[in-house]
């Protein structure tokens, strides 16, 4: 419980810091180019790793060989490319994952 409170406090402080940064530091001078680079390209790497980290705990060696998770991600991505509706994509992929986890 302490870890949860501490972790949430850390997230709150860091989020506030990012929102206050322009007002605190960059009201008089231009932000460094590296920051602009980072905010542009880091999210793509972060999202990739967050998706990949799901598979870190998947056991591909034994049945169902990670199939529910792979199919879930593939269907979520396909739904999103098709309809581009966040809730439909998430609900569809999650439902398929739950279904396959129960069946296989």
């Amino acid at each position: 419980m302490n870890r949860l409170l501490l972790g949430t406090a850390a997230m709150a402080v860091v989020t506030l810091f990012t929102r206050a940064a322009p007002f605190l530091f960059f009201s008089k001078r231009k932000p460094p180019a590296y920051l602009d680079f980072l905010q542009r390209y880091a999210p793509a790497a972060v999202m990739s790793l967050l998706v990949l980290s799901t598979f870190r705990s998947v056991d591909f060696g034994s049945a169902p060989h990670g199939l529910p998770a792979l199919a879930g991600v593939a269907v979520t991505a396909a739904l999103h490319l098709w309809k581009r509706n966040v809730l439909v994509s998430i609900a569809g992929g999650t439902a398929l994952y739950m279904l396959l986890s129960g069946l296989l």
Partner: peptide, 18 residues
């Protein structure tokens, strides 16, 4: 069971957008 996959699905959506 398995509802937490919604997290992975959310990150997949965000990745597609990226």
């Amino acid at each position: 069971e398995g509802l937490d996959f919604a997290l992975t699905a959310l990150f997949t959506v965000l990745l597609v957008e990226q």
